[in-house]
Design a protein around this nucleic acid. Structure first.
Lengths: 136, 136
DNA sequence: AATTGAGCTTACGTAAACGTCAGGATGACG
DNA sequence: CGTCATCCTGACGTTTACGTAAGCTCAATT
């Protein structure tokens, strides 16, 4: 692993299916901090890992600010104990929220499945009712 | 209790913890359609059910437009077969998305739990300022 | 009669998460 | 050497999901 550690912004965009604007925006929001060679950004393995977490968080409906908190948990530099404990508490709250969300999601999936079931029945019934409707 | 079928906008707001603006906004986006007595809105059991679905959808990170699609599934009036089938397909896609989201969420919860574990360890280590360096 | 309170419409404001465009620097290439 | 591609930094535009404020109606209360 010599130099493919570093990826350009375009390589990142292709790899993660995002735009340069998005990566720069995340940097402005302090979610990413790529190395600079001159003015050019280079993304390391660390940034890739963080971006993975960011995109995953987004799929869960978390705001970028929420995600920034979670990222702080991963970025343990042991700098400040009080800060770490605060972050830990925050993460526990977030964990509980996620577990509740998962449970609700499980219920909603059940509801939707049942609804689809009767929906299928209604469609079948509708098919029988008008044998040859004017198709398009 | 003959007339508690109908709820005013304020009663709805208190019951669901939303603002009047939110309910009017949902109406403008055709997610709700309360009865009008004069110019006043009255919400029936149906609207309450729809609002429940809306708020639940929001907690899953779905956009109002997404939710509107799902609501169409529940509002089966049997008017148009093609429309129903399209909606049904859409709902199936959405269901698969939800199941995948649930699975990802389950994984992420596991990750976060593990991370909290080591986080707790690090905090403890930081408290005993003589801890050995982590030889991971 | 005058005030108060709830509700209505219209319309401008706002925060989040980017999109898009202008203008400029830099290295690669024919 | 000029052109092209790629990157950069502003900076303004856009969409979503409401917040907020102004001004009007109407019924109940003081």
């Amino acid at each position: 692993m010599p130099n493919d550690e570093q990826m350009t912004i375009r390589e990142m965009c292709d790899a993660f299916d995002v735009t340069p604007r998005t990566l720069r925006f995340y940097e402005a929001k302090e979610l990413l901090s790529p190395v600079r060679i001159g003015s050019q950004r280079l993304y390391t393995r660390r940034e890739r890992a963080r971006l993975t977490i960011i995109l995953r968080g987004k799929r869960f409906g978390f705001s970028l600010e929420d995600i920034r908190q979670v990222l702080n948990l991963y970025a343990r530099d042991g700098s400040n104990l009080a800060q770490m404990e605060r972050t830990w508490d925050l993460a526990q709250d977030r964990l509980r929220a996620m577990e509740q969300q998962r449970d609700e999601l499980t219920l909603a999936i059940g509801d939707l499945k049942a609804e689809l079931e009767t929906g299928a029945g209604l469609i079948a019934a509708a098919r029988n009712q008008n044998a040859a409707p004017p198709g398009k």
